[in-house]
């Protein structure tokens, strides 16, 4: 966790130019798609776990995951969960509820373009609901200001994914957001600490630019039976039987071992490991 804190501190330091404390998030924001290219558009290839601090349990679930899952009606209209939704397409509309007397912000409502999911960040000091309350894609968010950074603690999230090629994130994960404003750039750093599927917390950042002319469109989804399946059909591969798993390594030239993820891949020292693996592959 110490290393994670350093990453967050470093991110905050880079944005430490004058910014008003407790800034106003409300408005429309266009996404800056300048990082994490693999998560955009068609998304990552099967078997690409590069850079993810996943453990063996996550690896097995991802290895046995089948994209055929999206033919099952119950899985067709799943939006991205709160820790993946900001990766996009995620231009945002943000509104606020104010106390009618003090004008203090009671809640921020952040609506993401992809499937119009809305995160509500409660700023009125309320606690999270009881353990037995329902889980949602956006979770239950409670915000507090730490200087000029809005820190958001999120609970009650549905099981989701670290990467949309079957790499899981459990519903026991603790998710923390750090919102930072740098002039007209709004930056989000998300830390996911999942005791089930991560060796170390996953840390990602994304950014938006203020865009007053942005208009969000509706994004409805209704599930359809596109293929007749037996009742209870669950697409998956048995362990060791996924024929697509090595395609990413073979097509990209990234050594198989390096496609498998792991906490060590988050650190610069891994470059030396990668050089060695590439050298071994070349021989």
């Amino acid at each position: 966790m110490k290393k994670v804190s350093i990453v967050i501190m470093a991110g905050a330091a880079l944005c430490a130019l004058p910014a008003p404390a407790q800034f106003n998030l409300a408005g429309s924001w266009a996404q800056r798609q300048h990082e994490d290219r693999g998560e955009r558009g068609g998304g990552p290839q099967i078997g690409d776990y590069t850079g993810l601090p996943i453990n063996d349990a996550a690896r097995l679930r991802a290895d046995t995951w089948s994209p055929d899952q999206w033919t099952v009606p119950e899985h067709q209209c799943e939006p991205h969960p709160i820790d993946y939704a900001p990766l996009g397409p995620a231009s945002m509309l943000i509104t606020a509820d104010h106390d009618p007397v003090s004008y203090d912000v009671i809640a921020w409502h952040l609506t993401f373009a992809w499937m119009n999911t809305t995160q509500t960040i409660w700023m009125d000091g309320r606690e999270h609901p009881p353990e037995q309350a329902p889980r949602t894609w956006m979770g239950h968010s409670v915000g507090r200001w730490k200087g000029d950074i809005l820190v958001v603690d999120i609970s009650h999230v549905k099981e989701g994914w670290i990467r949309r090629n079957g790499v899981p994130r459990s519903d026991l994960a603790k998710i923390t957001q750090y919102w930072i404003l740098h002039e007209d750039i709004l930056q989000l750093v998300t830390v996911v600490d999942d005791p089930v599927y991560l060796e170390e917390p996953s840390v990602r950042s994304v950014a938006w630019q203020a865009h007053t002319g942005y208009r969000m469109g509706p994004y409805p989804c209704s599930a359809r039976v596109e293929l007749d399946r037996p009742r209870g059909y669950v697409p998956h591969y048995l362990p060791g039987a996924n024929p697509l798993l090595r395609d990413f390594s073979e097509e990209s030239g990234i050594p198989w071992e390096a496609t498998r993820g792991g906490a060590e891949q988050m650190y610069p020292e891994y470059q030396e490991v990668l050089k060695r693996l590439l050298s071994e592959d070349a021989q």
């Binding site: 119950e74 209209c77 119009n116 999911t117 037995q132 309350a133 329902p134 894609w137 549905k158 989804c221």
Partner: peptide, 21 residues
Amino acid sequence: RNEEGGTLAISGHGAISDEYE
């Protein structure tokens, strides 16, 4: 909408769930 809410299930032990869980 979005595979959330709608019919809710009270599990035998644990949390209230929707179809996704």
